[in-house]
Nucleic acid binder design. Structure first.
Lengths: 225, 225
DNA sequence: CCTATATTCAAATAATATATTGATTGTTTA
DNA sequence: TAAACAATCAATATATTATTTGAATATAGG
């Protein structure tokens, strides 16, 4: 009889975790944080919210234990409480893409997976090892520093036009923040206009990490403070 | 600019999937359905709800595309839309147990994983192959018929006292509906009182299936109608 | 036709969810 | 020490939603 009560509590608590996944802005925050810790301010800007609103959503995520945060300097840096949160987010995406036509159609029309290089993570790893490809990471430098595909070069999206000439003309594999990342698409489009041979990868660092492949990190112990 | 809109729609839709996971009764329904399809009536009874309430929750689950249903005879049979829904539910549990102290503590005190046989699914598979153990499935017969561990014998919990004598005295491995299943605990307790040597498995069929191990099914094409 | 099973509807209740504004706290920097 | 900044909190407003109940309605079976 006591176990019955405990079981209900467990389901209740797990439901609160599910509930935390039930808002667009919060999912976006999880998605952003899967590329490394960020201050509240940045999360607010990236999700188009006021600081107060972002702070409220973060409170929900913290209550569900999905996000942890720490004050350093004058910023509060937020991060996923564990890599398994990113994996939960990936699994949610997979289920949505598999089962919800609304998701599947939107993904197909706006972020067509068929437009990406049809390479699995291990296949990319093998090309990296053989020096057959140049990986280009379009994310901001802090995210690149926090973790990247091996031998990837960092060329943040806003600097693309100016610095593209640093890249080789051939065999570019471009990635940014994952399958729904607008910059990855536009980056490849721009590079092609500039006569580079470039393909988009359909995944990013969190998926790479979840596949058990090695992630390269800048030697500075944490994020710059 | 159009991609930005599509991205927001994707997140919105995925949030509605998350939202569907945000209620105790709905999680319980998913958990039950991971052992096979069930009519609405049974889901209502098992979750302690009126038919109308259960129906409303099922509507949410259907809208999120997690559950499909079909009318056969006078019942509406509900089932998970895909095995990946069960996997999402498992992942949610794992995250909860890993990160939420409320969940972890409740699990430890009421459903202590340490009280289960410390066997992984492949280890159990190997024992089955060598005939080193007798698996006992305490679930209702329909769930047993819909999918079970190889060579498991079915002894539904309510019949345990009456029919325990059919079992060998040694090397019993008992499972029911998973890590939070009360019957699995009480079943093992009763068997031990009756001087059987029995251990509880910390997992059930959905976890077994997710591990890629073979599930045995009764030859009748679907559920009995 | 009558019954069993589900869904829907109307309604009630309560509760949430979300965002805004302004105040407050703690920290850094001038 | 004061000013500027980052974040949270408190109070508030609005709207919406969540959940359940009981009755009415469909649907199919016997």
């Amino acid at each position: 009889m006591d176990r019955k009560k405990a079981q209900e509590q467990i389901f209740e608590q797990l439901a609160s975790v599910g509930d935390a996944l039930g808002n667009r802005h919060r999912l976006k925050m999880i998605s952003l944080l899967s590329h490394g810790e960020k201050p509240v301010e940045e999360l607010a800007a990236a999700t188009g919210q006021s600081m107060a609103a972002a702070s409220a959503h973060l409170k929900v995520l913290r209550a569900a234990r999905l996000v942890a945060s720490e004050k350093r300097g004058r910023h509060v840096y937020c991060r996923l409480a564990s890599p398994s949160v990113a994996e939960l987010w990936m699994r949610l995406r997979e289920v949505g893409e598999e089962l919800a036509p609304e998701v599947r159609d939107a993904v197909r029309t706006a972020f067509d997976p068929a437009s990406a290089a049809p390479l699995t993570a291990p296949e990319v790893m093998s090309r990296i090892r053989r020096g057959r490809a140049t990986l280009v990471d379009l994310r901001p430098e802090v995210e690149y520093a926090a973790g990247r595909l091996p031998k990837a070069r960092n060329l943040p999206f806003p600097e693309l036009n100016r610095r593209a000439k640093e890249l080789p003309r051939k065999d570019l594999l471009v990635y940014c923040r994952g399958p729904y990342c607008v910059m990855a698409f536009e980056g490849v489009e721009r590079l092609r206009e500039m006569k580079f041979s470039a393909e988009r990868l359909a995944f990013s660092v969190p998926e790479w990490r979840a596949a058990g492949l090695p992630v390269e990190v800048s030697s500075t112990s944490g994020e710059p403070s």
